[in-house]
Amino acid sequence: MKYVLSFNLNGLPVDTLVKATDTLLDVLREKLNVVSPKRGCDNGDCGACTVLVNGEPVRACLTIGLTVAGKNVQTVEGLQQDGKLHPLQRAFHEHYAAQCGFCTPGMLIAAKALLDKNPKPTREQIVEGISGNLCRCGTYVEVVEAIQAVAAGKYKE
């Protein structure tokens, strides 16, 4: 049995046929070919699949796809505006906050969720904000520095 799932993806409406058991990660990656959310564990442990649903960071692998019906889903594909990198993208690049890059989309989304709510976080708040995102390359120091730089206004247009 399949259902039509309609939602807003990075500002554009999408419709797709899904099974009741498909996770949001399955829907995005396998049905819609939106591959920035990564399948690191499929178990809620790593954060590589983090996306925004109505502005809230969620683990796409733990979210049933049908629950996003009518909602706004944001992924790294939607971070660039007018062809320009988002300040967090620039900061991550310039701070070497991506090594292999596999955890990076999840990290960027976690960082965006944090700064959207709290534009001037303390170091501790930043660490907390990304502590659910595992990076086996160990870029945490650089990720924190990049987010601090954005929070300090260094990447304003």
Binding site: C41, D45, V127, S131, Y140
Partner: peptide
């Protein structure tokens, strides 16, 4: 079994001074 019980270092486990 997986990353639930294989505990790798998170951002919160990193020393505050590196």
């Amino acid at each position: 079994q997986d990353l639930t019980d294989y505990v790798i270092t998170t951002a919160a486990d990193m020393p505050p001074v590196m």
